[in-house]
Design a protein around this nucleic acid. Structure first.
Lengths: 196, 196
DNA sequence: GCCACAACCGGACTATAGTCCAATTGTCTT
DNA sequence: AAGACAATTGGACTATAGTCCGGTTGTGGC
């Protein structure tokens, strides 16, 4: 088994760089938890991590990148469950059941980290649609919706209703329960073949 | 943004204030058209209008408010057509036809002013959901969708697929035609009663 | 016409995201 | 072990959104 495949990044990361990245993530997690994502500036994160601003931005690109890095681990759990976990989220259930399970699980994930996800989606214009995670969800949904006339558009439409910005705005107005029910209904109706 | 800032207030406006507002709108329209909405700073607008920054911000609140003010006239045309125009947009057609007509007309409006609308929706966090226009569209859709289990959520879901941010991201990927078709399909399926 | 007062004005000021580059530090070669 | 080289660092710097407040100017009452 070639050892190269086990090294995290192919070009090795310098130890000081790795230490700094860990320090930044730790400091950011603490500050965000203490004061809320919105209220923490990048300067604060850099200072708390004992690192310069330049380092912070080169590592994570911008604030949305930092948020995305913090979400990375949690995201992978969901992705793993979809790819290799048991049905109905994973393979083995009918498409409509997998779709419902995904919406349900994603909504949980959203509620759990709403502010962070919102930051990762909105800090830069169009950020949401470029990050790898969005592409993953989109691909998954398009496959589940492949019986519809335009699976790709349908997948985007479902994800639009699952954007952090959208859910944040709806939460005080409709409450968690109604939103969840509405999302599941939306997913079900998006599934229907156009056999009217 | 507070609607009060966008409409002429009943208590008479001072003539210098009115002149400044007109100058700002004119200068902003010109600069936005010339250089694109993103590329123009508020300082530039203020300078071009011959007005101080304070004046600019007090009048329009923030950049999204300025964008909304510029859209105001065009928005009213669509709202008027819905309230008092001929069917299928106006009263007199079946709900599903009115819904399709709205999606079609709104999509036209969106394409026509995509950057401005995007600015009015995204400059401030949550701005989109607070502006009066959104409330209008939402109410209209909720009425058309009143046969569904949760008209308010369904209306939000349709509008989520019509957000400027979303359409901007989809346009290069899917193209205008596919998006329009997908939106009409989405609207139709949202309409269906849950008669399963 | 004049006065008082509220509304308005504008630019200096703050806060924050993000850029840049000279100096530093780790790593690899010989 | 030392030198060469590239990756990394960090803080000074820029650009922009948005705030604040002392001075100014309409406006309505007398």
């Amino acid at each position: 088994m070639p050892l190269e495949l086990l090294r995290t990044p192919p070009p090795k990361e310098r130890v000081d760089a790795a230490r700094n990245r860990a320090a930044v993530l730790k400091a950011a997690a603490r500050l965000f938890a203490e004061q809320g994502v919105e209220a923490v500036s990048m300067d604060q994160v850099a200072a708390a991590a004992g690192v310069g601003k330049g380092t912070l931005f080169r590592r994570f690109g911008d604030k949305s990148g930092l948020a995305a890095a913090l979400l990375d681990a949690r995201e992978r759990v969901l992705q793993e469950a979809i790819l290799h976990g048991p049905p109905p989220l994973g393979l083995g259930a009918a498409a409509d059941e997998r779709l419902a399970a995904f919406v349900d699980a994603y909504f949980d994930y959203l509620l759990e980290h709403l502010d962070l996800i919102r930051m990762s989606e909105t800090a830069a214009p169009g950020a949401r649609y470029r990050i790898g995670a969005y592409r993953f969800w989109h691909r998954h949904l398009a496959i589940l919706l492949s019986a519809t006339p335009d699976p790709e558009h349908a997948a985007h439409a479902v994800l639009a209703a699952l954007s952090a910005e959208h859910i944040t705005a709806l939460l005080p107005e409709l409450g968690e329960k109604r939103i969840r029910a509405g999302l599941l209904r939306l997913a079900r109706s998006a599934m229907q073949r156009p056999g009217r």
